[in-house]
């Protein structure tokens, strides 16, 4: 039973990070039907920003949790700015181009950002300060749930709840939903679509930054390439849950995290990815739009 709980929680914490990144993919897809391949790189840039901030504040001798909180906030702002800029440079000029064009532009952006960080920082792995202390009251649960796992899970839940509130009840959230339903119609009734798209990129990017800083301080190291696999897995999670659907991305992330964790625990980590992608294939066979995606009639 304890072993089950261990795997359950490690899957949960991994899954919540996948979900945080997957939200960015799914929100952008929901609004402009673009798969933003540069999103993984935004996550990586978030982690690097966190490292720089953490390095500065550690030198000033701040307490670890305060540093973590500030690092997360600064990384969110910085990544948000990157997301905004990427959209303006790489996607906005191509908004009315054939759908393949922005996709290729996205891949280009991803390669550019990776190499830019590699050249500006270093190709080596960098140690990331472990900002999550082992809290005393967690001692008895430590055998199956570490403090950093708990913090990742709690932060993800809070962030996702806030996002849900934002989408459901605020003016901008409503405008986002309207744009996702029908961009032209939203424009006709006076929604500033450009602004909505920018906001989507900023929010998606800052969520990825939260995931980036949390995982980096959990794993204790980063390099310019971490965004690739994380992005790939998160994209899988978004498709699994139904791309375009926000609750779908959250569910997809968790399902993927658990699948990987249990496959490793009960079968073999050799087959971790096999099981993850097998699940994806199965779900897409029986529910082509993903777990929570809406089945839409296609115009032919």
């Amino acid at each position: 039973m304890e072993y089950f709980l261990q795997l359950f929680f490690s899957g949960l914490s991994k899954g919540s990070v996948y979900a945080l990144i997957a939200l960015g993919y799914t929100m952008v897809y929901g609004i402009i039907e673009l798969i933003n391949f540069a999103h993984g790189e935004i996550y990586m840039i978030g982690a690097f920003t966190g490292l720089i901030v953490a390095g500065l504040l550690t030198a000033l001798g701040w307490p670890a949790l305060a540093i973590l909180a500030i690092a997360v906030v600064v990384a969110m702002v910085y990544s948000g700015a990157y997301g905004y800029t990427v959209e303006k440079i790489a996607y906005k000029p191509l908004r009315n181009a054939p759908r393949l064009a922005p996709l290729i532009s996205a891949i280009g952006m991803s390669i550019f950002l990776q190499n830019y960080v590699m050249l500006a920082q270093t190709p080596d792995f960098l140690p990331f300060p472990r900002l999550i202390p082992d809290l005393a009251f967690m001692q008895k649960y430590n055998s199956f749930l570490g403090t950093s796992d708990l913090l990742i899970i709690v932060t993800s839940i809070v962030v996702m709840a806030a996002l849900n509130f934002f989408i459901k009840f605020t003016r901008m959230g409503k405008a986002m939903r309207a744009t996702a339903q029908n961009r032209k119609m939203a424009m006709l009734v006076g929604v500033n679509v450009d602004q909505v798209i920018s906001a989507t990129f900023i929010i998606g990017s800052s969520l990825a930054a939260v995931g980036g800083v949390l995982i980096a301080s959990h794993m204790g190291q980063i390099n310019f390439y971490i965004g690739f696999i994380a992005g790939l897995k998160a994209f899988t999670a978004a498709v699994l849950g139904g791309i375009g659907s926000i609750p779908g991305a959250m569910l997809g992330g968790l399902v993927l995290g658990w699948t990987e964790s249990f496959a490793t625990g009960y079968v073999s980590s050799d087959y971790e990815d096999v099981f993850a992608f097998l699940l994806l294939v199965l779900i897409l066979i029986f529910r082509p739009a993903g777990l929570l995606g809406k089945q839409r009639a296609q115009k032919v």
Binding site: S10, K14, A230, E260, E272
Partner: peptide, 12 residues
């Protein structure tokens, strides 16, 4: 066992 290089997390 084999692990996938570049994985997000190896806690499992």
């Amino acid at each position: 066992e084999g692990i996938t290089p570049g994985g997000v997390d190896y806690s499992a």
